[in-house]
Design a protein around this nucleic acid. Structure first.
Lengths: 216, 216
DNA sequence: GCATTTAATAACTATCCAGTTACTTACTTG
DNA sequence: CAAGTAAGTAACTGGATAGTTATTAAATGC
């Protein structure tokens, strides 16, 4: 028989707005990435965040606005990582290969951003389009690629006339597609592409292919 | 007051098993591609196919088995198109660029397959893995790429040691990623990537980049 | 130290949705 | 042509799911 415990009658109220909001956002990020917008449920998010479901509506207003907050945070995180990256200003070949490696490693470390982008594209980017925050975060990476390409062109190591947007899309796609489609590609390739050996082989190929694609 | 019309009392029963099944499958393909497995609903599919919902269960058994049938048909269609493609057996450069063009054009024409693959990957390919039919459809394209690479290598136009799987993944990724992420990329790029001009520019770049990536 | 605001809870509602039951009507075949 | 089977319908069920109502309790501020 338990002694009457007044703390269990009306149990813990943490009353920590910052922590509760953050816990919801973290769990929601994982759930939206795993199950997509339709697949994720507010009941599940509330349970896994150890929070009363009403709190989702208290802090975010609706499922869609919670999803928007998740997207905005994911974008901010990705941009922040990009900005921390220091590229060799004097060697376009090393700068471009470093950027390709960085892209591959970012996706290899965490596929959350890929999953969210795929969900958003299936939904025709209707939510992302609305976000002033994300539209304001204009990427510095496109300018960096342009600088690298012009420098390489001037030095005669890259071919001329390359478009920064096209090259950037190509560089990203070589890593993105591998991780985005890793399950179906593993079936076609007949082996587990998430194993260390396969990852290393793909990483080498991506860097190689990007450099070969732009060289003079 | 309407005259009593016996035809409208118990309305038309078409009783065409083949047509009804096909209508369900077509609508389901569209709905699963647009909304994903969770997003699509059997009620909606039934309505849009002008079919009683019970017929979905009559012909396919469950939502998941309907989805599997959709996947299997999409794979079969893709494989069939691949097999019809005739590549120049004597010119590896033209064969590879033709294959890159074909890949781009297939995705440009219809993004259904891309959407289904993305849905399936978000779901860890759990349904696709089960399909004996799809596992049996082993692709001829990997062998074709290998043949092209070895021929180009022997003639000194491609560099040596290239892996067919890696090159194939790269070639597909350059087109796939563009179409899969066309909505979010349009925001980054600041223009509508589905416009004819943008499509033509990407197509040129893809072919260019693939050839540059493998040349000696 | 009292009034207001903010954080938190439990229980509820209306709707949706996968799958089913019970039935009818047309086609096929012995 | 009668019996059995295949194709079709309407109405229902149980469980999930986004969002709400009503209420309580801790923090804040005057």
């Amino acid at each position: 028989m338990n002694a009457v415990n007044p703390e269990t009658k009306k149990p813990r109220m943490e009353r920590d707005a910052v922590a509760t909001r953050a816990r919801i956002l973290n769990v929601a990020t994982r759930e939206f990435a795993r199950r997509g917008f339709e697949g994720a449920t507010t009941d599940d998010i509330a349970d896994k965040a150890h929070v009363n479901k009403r709190m989702i509506y208290h802090y975010f207003g609706s499922k869609e606005r919670l999803y928007l907050a998740v997207l905005e945070e994911a974008y901010a995180t990705a941009r922040h990582a990009e900005e921390k990256l220091k590229l060799d200003a004097d060697d376009p070949v090393s700068a471009l290969s470093r950027l390709a490696e960085f892209t591959f490693d970012s996706f290899a470390r965490d596929r959350t951003f890929i999953s969210l982008l795929n969900t958003e594209n299936r939904n025709e980017a209707k939510v992302l389009r609305k976000s002033e925050k994300i539209r304001a975060m204009n990427s510095t990476v496109l300018k960096a690629v342009d600088t690298i390409l012009r420098q390489g062109e001037a030095r005669g190591v890259f071919r001329s006339g390359l478009d920064a947007f096209q090259v950037w899309v190509s560089m990203v796609s070589l890593s993105y597609f591998y991780f985005s489609n890793i399950h179906t590609l593993s079936i076609v390739g007949g082996s587990r592409l998430s194993e260390a050996e396969a990852l290393a082989a793909r990483r080498r190929h991506v860097v190689d292919f990007v450099l070969a694609g732009v060289r003079a």
